[in-house]
Amino acid sequence: MSLILQALINGLVSGALLAVPAIGFTAMFAVLRFPNFSVSGIATLGAFAGYVAYGAGLQVVGSLAVAFVIAGAVGLVLDRVAHLPLVKQGALPAAIASIASGLVLENVVRLGFGNDLRGYDRPIARDMHIGDIRFSPQQFETMAVALAIMLAVFAALAFTRIGKAMRASADNPELAALKGIRPQRIAMMASFVGMGLVGMGGMLLGLDSSIDPLTGTRILLSIFAAAVLGGLGSPLGAVLGALLIGIAEEGAVLAVGSAYRAAVGFFAILIVLSLRPRGLLGERAF
């Protein structure tokens, strides 16, 4: 029983960390209308940008801000130069181009930092125990930061003028243009914020374990599965999807071994596309 409870808690923690890049991915899909797979490279870039900033003496929050800005800026340039010009030909060419962009970014990071695993040099803290259940204070600190980021994103979408304009543009871009909302500006905003969130997600996952040039590639399938499971285009759905994927991955480790953890994402996508293609909350739900 305690093993199951431990897996549930671990799943919730990893799901919360996964939710941040999943919100970024789904928000970009809602506005730009193509699955941007360059999030693998952007998550890696964010993880390394945060790593450098943290190594230079910034605190976690400051390092996350650096990861957000660097990932957002690079993602914005990639979208403008390599992805969005292809969207006119359909979502598929843009999606394929984004896979290529992700590979380029991954290898640029590899060129700069090599293939070695690196860890954020955080102070060591003793685990806490409640019965047989083990808690790491750092894990919870990271999860709290992730929850704060999510709250900030949802508050921005719900209460700010630009957040509402992004939702309007995702809901009905033609009508949004008729109301004076400039689609190009909203697309740029979605690229910057979405990629920034993915970059922060990369760093959060790095804080929880370690980073290397394949950090983003390893979580790409989980990010995509979380977004599809929740309903592509729905930020709230992405959070729900990420939590479920996190719990399912930990459950798979417990049930069939860690080698099958990666299969959870494939399995979730297969089930959702077969039974409920619009996802749990449907596309473009808040």
């Binding site: 003028r161 509402k164 304009a165 939702r167 309007a168 809901d171 009905n172 009508l175 949004a176 109301k179 004076g180 909302i181 473009r284 739900a285 808040f286």
Partner: peptide, 16 residues
């Protein structure tokens, strides 16, 4: 905007 509330729709109507 189907996914947004009536009040939010009016706000978007007055975006300019």
């Amino acid at each position: 905007f189907g996914a947004m509330s009536v009040a939010e729709n009016l706000e978007m109507g007055g975006f300019l």
